[in-house]
């Protein structure tokens, strides 16, 4: 199976080569674990290899996203102007407004993402975050249907996709609504656990269909230049003890 670089060396080592190409991966973690930065590394890696990318955000506006990532050395603005990167979406409140105004369905929104991907022939997609996207729908049935529509689109467009997903603080959950992790090809979990007078971060690959991967929970740090993963280093604390 062909692998592509995630943009974080330690993750590629945990995955024994990189992310499987054209698959969908759920990146789950509670608040502040580094999901968006991780996803940005993934996009940045694609852009540096000449691949066009799409970033679908429900967390913040494109302008804020570009500013925040610029502070860790990722120049998404230039890439967007060059047409190699498309950032769509925006703050969830705005998206909800437009969704209600246009009476758009999950299929309409999934097709919109597909249109943008096909327009620039993107190879990598980030959806940040999946739980905010699902929050646009009122019932559990609608959310499951929305997830199915999204999965169907991602399968058809042959891109490697990372979807971030927030989970409740202090739990072992892999998703917000409890079904997202079953629909994707892989799950990478980010942790943030109190240790002494600070929070320590860690990462582990929970599942990745079709490839061997390390089962270990390893240390992760967010520094000025982004995420660093230490594939041979266990975190300093007992995570589940």
């Amino acid at each position: 199976m062909k692998r592509i670089k995630s943009g974080i060396n330690g993750i590629d080592i945990l995955l024994q080569g990189g992310l499987p190409e054209k698959r969908t991966v759920l990146l789950s973690g509670s608040c502040g674990t580094g999901k968006s930065i991780f996803a940005a590394h993934f996009i940045n890696q694609g852009l540096s290899m000449g691949e066009n990318c799409v970033y679908v955000t429900f967390e913040e506006s494109a302008h804020n996203l570009i500013d925040n990532l610029g502070s860790i050395g990722m120049n998404f603005e230039a890439m967007e102007k060059a047409g190699k990167l498309k950032i769509i979406g925006g703050a969830i409140g705005n998206i909800k407004f437009f969704k209600e105004k246009t009476k758009a369905s999950a299929k309409d929104m999934a097709e919109e993402i597909k249109e943008v991907v096909l327009e620039i022939k993107a190879k990598r997609i980030v959806l940040d975050s999946l739980n905010l996207f699902l929050m646009l729908f009122d019932t559990d049935t609608e959310r499951r249907h929305a997830m199915a529509e999204l999965s169907s689109v991602f399968e058809n467009i042959s891109c490697t996709t990372i979807m971030t997903c927030e989970v409740k603080e202090g739990t072992r959950d892999l998703s917000w609504y409890g079904f997202e992790e079953f629909v994707v090809d892989g799950v990478i979990s980010l942790y943030r656990v109190p240790f002494e007078n600070m929070f320590e971060r860690a990462v582990s690959v929970i599942k990745m269909r079709g490839i061997n991967h390390s089962p270990n929970i390893v240390a992760l740090q967010i520094r000025d230049d982004g995420i660093h993963v230490f594939p041979t280093k266990a975190p300093f604390h007992k995570i589940f003890g």
Binding site: G89, F98, A104, D108, M109, E112, I113
Partner: peptide, 8 residues
């Protein structure tokens, strides 16, 4: 007309 939500 296409219903645009993410990129109005």
């Amino acid at each position: 007309p296409k219903r645009r939500v993410l990129a109005p």
